[in-house]
């Protein structure tokens, strides 16, 4: 599979279909893979693809160095897991990238991807994806357990969890949909989110982060993975996903043509208070 992938990337670069490919290379030790930009055909040899290829690559498409490449013509290639493709759908929907500017090389099982990729290298269910699936199931169970608590217990639970937050903003930095030029957490006039990692400030930060991703979170799980103090952020994200699915029959990251329900005005909106 890896040989086929390398071969294909070489061809794409040689034929000038893309002028850069975002993929993974071997990290400092065998259990680490890190993102890499491949711009020359022979560099394709550096590519790896294994269960350690975890960090979301879609995030890199927004980096200024990649953006400036795009100005010079040619597409940006990206080796994409299902979550990468979902993130790309979100970014296209929110006009952060233009579909024609990216060349999506999906790697995995066809049924796991939204159908917007340019080509797919089919593989059986990878270890990584399988692990993600069991994780998902566990989280849903966790949420179901949590729902049984009283409102006071729920609040106490989150207060305890958020109290751990050290305001490192790793969750924000890794999130493919967190691309604001100025994050609300960094604004100080007015300062809606107190910068100190204290109880109240942490609560505002974590709730606002979750709310700003409501109806947009594409369920990659990166925020929770990045969090150094293991706050179960995906419980929040997934609960909101469930509610959006239930109320609006919508799931983020599947179809760039479907208008996102939480930020679209509709004449026949059943909530009269909008205007």
């Amino acid at each position: 599979m890896l040989d086929k992938l390398k071969q294909r990337i070489k061809e794409l670069l040689t034929n000038k279909i893309v002028n850069c490919v975002i993929g993974y290379e071997q990290g400092d030790n065998p259990t680490l893979a890190r993102p890499v930009y491949i711009t020359k055909p022979n560099e394709a040899e550096r590519l790896v693809y294994n269960e350690y290829c975890i960090p979301i690559l879609a995030k890199y498409i927004l980096k200024p160095e990649v953006r400036s490449l795009k100005l010079e013509a040619g597409k940006i290639g990206i080796i994409a897991k299902p979550s990468d493709v979902r993130a790309l759908v979100g970014l296209i929907q929110e006009k952060q990238i233009i579909r024609e500017d990216v060349y999506i090389i999906a790697v995995g099982r066809k049924e796991d991807f939204p159908k917007i990729y340019d080509e797919i290298i089919e593989t059986p269910l990878s270890e990584l994806d399988a692990k993600r699936k069991t994780q998902d199931a566990e989280q849903l169970k966790q949420i179901a357990e949590f729902e049984k608590k009283t409102p006071e217990e729920k609040r106490a639970f989150w207060q305890r969890e958020f109290d751990k937050c050290i305001k490192c903003y790793a969750c924000r930095q890794i999130c493919p949909l967190c691309y604001c030029r100025v994050c609300i957490a960094d604004k100080n006039q007015p300062q809606w989110i107190p910068p100190m990692p204290n109880s109240g400030g942490n609560f505002s930060w974590n709730m606002i982060r979750a709310y700003h991703l409501a109806g947009r979170c594409i369920d990659c799980g990166e925020c929770e993975r990045a969090c150094p103090v293991d706050i179960p952020l995906m419980m929040l994200n997934k609960k909101i996903q469930q509610m959006i699915k239930e109320k609006f029959d919508y799931q983020a990251g599947l179809d760039p043509e479907v208008p996102p329900p939480l930020s679209t005005y509709q004449e026949d909106d059943k909530e009269k208070f909008i205007i």
Partner: peptide, 30 residues
Amino acid sequence: KNICAGCNMCVQACPYQAIELKPIKDRKGN
């Protein structure tokens, strides 16, 4: 405009269609 990320959300949300995304160009017109 320095803060706006051009995500198009307000454009879709404005009930009066008062908002439009406008390009910001460099000196060469890119």
